[in-house]
Design a protein around this nucleic acid. Structure first.
Lengths: 300, 300
DNA sequence: TTGTAAGCGTTATCAT
DNA sequence: ATGATAACGCTTACAA
């Protein structure tokens, strides 16, 4: 018997998980669908997911959607074909019905008001914006610009609403010309900041929807001869790695990326266990944390 | 018959690729094994790989090794268990024999002298260093520091050799104290740069093994009150996205990341077709390109 | 052309 | 306990 085992080991035999999957209808594979693997925000949540899923015996497979509608649809079908046991998705074009139609347990990454029957884990964007504006106000800023990331997804709008809510609550006057809608990357930040700095009266501080945008804004401010934070403060949201490397280093609201990943993984594991049981959908919004670095200061 | 098809479509039926794989012994899945999904270098080569593999009907699965020996071994076994049709790997601890033992067609990403029987596609590091040093020399720099990324892998050593070769060829005197070995991340760059700037006579230019290191160095130079590039020039290698966002933007050697991915994918496809045929191992080193930005200038 | 049956490597079930 | 056998859903080879 021992010799048989030895022989088995020597021949490099690996259990055929294909056959097992055919029999058990479980693949021990989950798919993580992301709009853009290039965005430095995701790798860390991916790591949180992986660390939990690994422990539960699952392999995590990444799908790179690249903001494409067709690819997102296609990967949803691929997930069905592969018979993956679960899905993590930051949905862009896809609707909740389409996700549910796969009949694969899924957890939504991010805030998607349209997904009411699904587990969802994101960060508390409203709170992040509130805290950020509060901080800028405390520094003495009154004239605050907003570089508002905008995509097909609704989160852009909710950010805008948070912004106006805060202004109303603090009895500050709003300046519509200080709110600029931009794409979610650094090009958007560059274009948006250029517009803000071409105003006759520029803002004393600028808050961006994410760090990529803020970094683009920083770059443009520098090019146009403005000193940050002396002439204008700039602040981001996310706390991606690059935010600590810029000069000046970026003040930002840190999202608990790793924890988001962990929490999502735990939700999916539960969901996969209670298969026929109708577990109520849970949504969790992780709190953000102010990280003060060098890109913000009191107005001149 | 049409009604049957309609019913099939409505029920969201997807072909069971598990059963097919069991029968055909092909999964149409390839695995991409990376040491650190967080490093902004990889996403773009991943995209090159995906675009080609997608076209050939393969799904690309990412494995995040996280620099861990155990995980690397484990994922190699997972690849066998999953019966993936091919592997892309940037190997860290794993030997060529271990990869060959899986009997899965593989392409090596990067330069690994130890892998003599495998297809390999990386960038021409020697040439990159040569071109970089040549450029700094042309600017008038004589006293050049080197922040040498160091890992278990041998590429660090070959970079060091390129460095000394270049100095010998140009009859420049070498200063051993100007060569500092650091880890491959921005912390390494910070620590290394601090050491260089604490020397009684600091270098007029610093070349780093990658952009992450260079960005860390930039940060420290700024903290310690040195102006870049006036007081000291800093240069990186890779041209990651963040390199264009730093202030000053980083001069660097651009590696053709997307093309590397494409070429690797094409090699793997060939290798998977000529299964029993003994195709000779091909190694390709993609040329790097100088990208001049704002972090380099003639010495004061 | 159309249809039938064997077989892929497991796991689960049912006898022994 | 131990061992034989059916079944998972597909592909393919062969028969009608």
């Amino acid at each position: 018997v021992q010799r048989v085992f030895a022989a088995i080991a020597n021949l490099g035999y690996e259990h055929n998980s294909i056959a097992r999957s055919l029999r058990t209808d479980r693949t021990q594979i989950v798919m993580l669908m992301l709009p853009d693997i290039t965005n430095p925000f995701w790798p860390e949540v991916a790591r949180g997911i992986q660390d939990i899923m690994d422990g539960a015996g699952y392999s995590v497979v990444f799908a790179n959607i690249d903001w494409s509608d067709a690819r997102e649809q296609e990967f949803l079908r691929t997930a069905m074909r592969m018979r993956v046991d679960g899905i993590f998705i930051n949905p862009i074009h896809v609707t909740e019905d389409q996700v549910l139609a796969t009949r694969i347990p899924a957890v939504i990454l991010g805030n998607r008001p349209g997904f009411r029957k699904s587990d969802m884990v994101g960060s508390d964007t409203e709170m992040a914006i509130h805290k950020a504006l509060e901080y800028l106000l405390r520094l003495g800023h009154q004239r605050i610009g907003l570089l508002l990331g905008r995509s097909e997804v609704t989160s852009g709008f909710s950010r805008q609403r948070s912004f106006y809510e805060f202004f109303a609550k603090n009895q500050l006057e709003t300046h519509p010309e200080l709110v600029v809608e931009v794409t979610f990357d650094n090009h958007g930040g560059e274009r948006g900041m250029r517009r803000l700095l071409e105003l006759s009266e520029i803002p004393t501080a600028v808050l961006a929807s994410n760090d990529l945008i803020a970094l683009g804004a920083l770059q443009v401010a520098h090019e146009m001869g403005y000193q940050v934070p002396k002439d204008v403060s700039i602040m981001g949201i996310d706390d991606i790695h690059a935010a600590s490397l810029s000069i000046p280093a970026l003040t930002t609201m840190r999202k608990p990326k790793y924890e988001i990943g962990q929490k999502a993984a735990r939700l999916l594991l539960e969901r996969m266990q209670n298969t026929n049981d109708s577990l109520a959908p849970r949504i969790s919004k992780c709190p953000c944390q102010l990280v003060v670095r060098a890109s913000t200061a009191p107005p001149a």
